[in-house]
Amino acid sequence: MTYRVRIENADGEVVTIEISADELREKGLTLEELLPPNARIVEVEEVEP
Results as ranks from 00 to 15, higher is better:
Met1Asp: 02
Met1His: 08
Met1Asn: 06
Thr2Ile: 15
Thr2Ser: 12
Thr2Val: 15
Thr2Gly: 07
Thr2Met: 15
Tyr3Phe: 12
Tyr3Glu: 00
Arg4His: 05
Arg4Leu: 09
Val5Pro: 00
Val5Asn: 00
Arg6Phe: 11
Arg6Val: 13
Arg6Trp: 14
Arg6Gln: 08
Ile7Cys: 05
Ile7Phe: 15
Glu8His: 05
Asn9Ile: 14
Asn9Gln: 13
Asn9Met: 15
Ala10Glu: 14
Ala10Gln: 11
Ala10Leu: 11
Asp11Thr: 09
Asp11Met: 11
Asp11Trp: 10
Asp11Tyr: 10
Gly12Asn: 04
Gly12Glu: 02
Gly12Tyr: 03
Glu13Asp: 09
Glu13Arg: 13
Glu13Gly: 09
Val14Arg: 07
Val14His: 09
Val14Asn: 05
Val15Cys: 13
Val15Trp: 15
Val15Asp: 05
Thr16Val: 14
Ile17His: 02
Glu18Gly: 02
Glu18Met: 14
Ile19Gln: 00
Ile19Lys: 00
Ile19Tyr: 06
Ser20Ala: 09
Ser20Trp: 05
Ala21Thr: 06
Ala21Phe: 10
Ala21Pro: 04
Ala21Gly: 09
Asp22Ile: 11
Asp22Thr: 12
Arg25Met: 11
Glu26Cys: 12
Lys27Val: 04
Lys27Met: 09
Gly28Leu: 04
Gly28Arg: 07
Leu29Thr: 06
Leu29Cys: 11
Thr30Glu: 05
Thr30Phe: 04
Thr30Asn: 06
Thr30Gly: 04
Leu31Cys: 05
Glu32Thr: 09
Glu32Ala: 11
Glu32Ser: 09
Glu32Phe: 11
Glu33Ser: 10
Leu34Ser: 06
Leu34Asp: 01
Leu35Asn: 01
Leu35Lys: 02
Leu35Gly: 01
Pro36Trp: 06
Pro36Glu: 07
Pro37Ala: 10
Pro37His: 09
Pro37Cys: 05
Pro37Asn: 06
Pro37Lys: 09
Asn38Leu: 07
Asn38Ser: 06
Asn38Tyr: 14
Asn38Ala: 05
Asn38Arg: 06
Ala39Tyr: 14
Arg40Gln: 06
Ile41Gly: 01
Ile41Glu: 01
Ile41Asn: 02
Ile41Gln: 01
Ile41Phe: 05
Val42Leu: 15
Val42Tyr: 04
Val42Asn: 01
Glu43Asp: 14
Glu43Pro: 01
Glu45His: 09
Glu45Gly: 04
Glu45Trp: 14
Glu45Asn: 08
Glu45Phe: 12
Glu46Phe: 14
Glu46Ala: 11
Glu46Met: 15
Val47Gly: 04
Glu48Ile: 14
Pro49Ala: 14
